[in-house]
């Protein structure tokens, strides 16, 4: 995975939160992890990547962030179903937006949602796994990505 791929994803994160009612998001320096469960929070939305790249993008966030995010886009229902929907939609949007830089052959799947630590995702992750830390309001989320 190249540095410019990570830069493209960071730009997508900044752009995503710029469309919320609090556009101030701090995106930390990407770092290597051994397994996705090192960063997993309450909910994880996973997008499988195929085509010219193979791998996955995982957006993982605590319930409190998702609840706040849902409210910030004008939705009052913060039920578990809506939090699952939100984590999947963020994962989908960040991965989809990356196509501007990564191209039409960066093919994304529909989101798969897991609650809690997604053990099975560690088995799927091959090669280097990068974690991009995201701080929005007082909450910490991450984007985990492994591509080959």
């Amino acid at each position: 995975m190249k540095e410019e791929n990570l830069k493209a994803l960071i730009d997508c994160i900044v752009n995503y939160f710029a469309h919320t009612n609090d556009p101030t998001v701090k995106v930390g320096t990407p770092y290597l992890i051994n397994a996705i469960n090192e960063i997993s929070a309450d909910y994880t939305g996973t997008i499988a990547i195929s085509g010219a790249y193979k791998g996955a993008c995982h957006f993982t966030a605590p319930s409190a962030l998702l609840r706040h995010l849902i409210l910030s886009i004008g939705e009052s229902d913060t039920s578990e179903m809506m939090m699952e929907d939100a984590v999947g939609e963020v994962a989908n949007t960040l991965s989809g937006n990356a196509r501007r830089e990564l191209g039409h052959d960066f093919i994304i799947s529909t989101p798969k949602i897991t609650k809690g630590t997604p053990q099975d995702l560690n088995k799927q992750a091959k090669g280097r796994i990068y974690a991009i830390p995201i701080n929005w309001k007082s909450y910490k989320a991450s984007l985990g990505i492994h591509l080959s």
Binding site: N92, L94, S95, G96, N97, R99, R100, G103, H104, I108
Partner: peptide
């Protein structure tokens, strides 16, 4: 209305 923002799509 989509997240897929490349020109080809």
């Amino acid at each position: 209305i989509s997240a897929l923002n490349d020109k080809a799509t």
